[in-house]
Design a binder for these strands. Structure first.
Lengths: 167, 167
DNA sequence: ATTATTGATTATCCTTGACCATCATTATAA
DNA sequence: TTATAATGATGGTCAAGGATAATCAATAAT
């Protein structure tokens, strides 16, 4: 069993994918509903495993929302957010980056953006080089605190992404 | 065993090389996945040695990206974005950029690179945003001389191009 | 002085299970 | 008939444990 979490993630992704072609899906964004218990049973795992997959993979940062209801007729609904307007997309990114971002956080974010097709692998590389250089200068040439460096890093990252979105 | 690092480096390079022939590799860039623990064991060294090799040899400045995941089913994936060889072309660029470059000079260089199809419009934009931010910080936050700023700019530009233009 | 190597410690990811919360339906009481 | 209480059927939370990988500081080699 090479990775249960990824298998479940892929399954849900495929569901959303097949929902994509549906009428109006591109406007309202795709969505799927499922039973936690059934999905868990079909993968032969404990139900809370589903929560783990949702919490770790279908996050707002990755462009998803999750709704649910308990009790009889309970359900879990996963929605893919469609950020059509460049401005929306930008606001979303600004929120995620924030005023300060660490190197590992930036690294993860860039990986996600690449997986979502928002940047190419070459663009990701360029951004990483720029962030590394900025961080290195801040550390060895100007002796800045880590927080200050993370602030500068966030500013540079946002500017670079803004430029791309508006391009 | 003083050449452990180089041996591991070569091993990973060879893996990437053999991946090169694969379908679509030239488009998406070559990549290999491995287990840190296993690789270390096969070289009879401690696992953190692998991190040293990756940190010192497979950097974005050299055209590589590294992804990893901890925990069960953990892995390390190395992606090569830039091709090898074009040592000559790279030296040429290093010469042109030199130790110091003004913003208009950088601008012209990037335009030429774009016209020659070596970088895309978006990549050029990304580089220009990074250079501008660096320059702006140097001026207003650290009150650096223009020459110092041009030196920093040249360094950043070379690093970004090294990762990319080797193609 | 720089680069390489090691090992101890820390951080992260995944999986499971016990226990908690909420909703819909049904039974019961007024 | 209506209000309320019990019941069953979901989903949520959290903490523990195992499996990796990352970090960092000390040491060795060049």
């Amino acid at each position: 069993m090479p990775n249960l979490t990824r298998a479940i993630e892929k399954y849900i992704h495929d569901l959303l994918e097949s929902e994509e072609g549906t009428a109006g899906a591109s406007l309202r964004g795709a969505s799927v509903s499922l039973r936690r218990k059934e999905l868990a049973a079909s993968f032969g795992c404990v139900p809370s495993q589903i929560n783990y997959v949702l919490r770790s993979r279908f996050t707002p940062e990755r462009g998803f929302l999750v709704e649910s209801q308990r009790g009889g007729h309970g359900y879990i609904r996963i929605l893919r957010i469609a950020c059509e307007e460049p401005e929306e997309k930008m606001n979303h990114i600004e929120d995620i980056v924030g005023d300060s971002i660490s190197e590992p956080e930036a690294h993860r974010l860039l990986q996600v953006l690449q997986e979502r097709g928002m940047i190419t692998v070459r663009e990701r590389l360029l951004i990483e080089v720029a962030l590394r250089h900025s961080d290195e200068m801040g550390r060895s040439d100007f002796d800045l605190s880590q927080h200050k460096r993370n602030t500068i890093q966030a500013e540079m990252l946002k500017r670079m992404l803004r430029g791309l979105v508006l391009a």
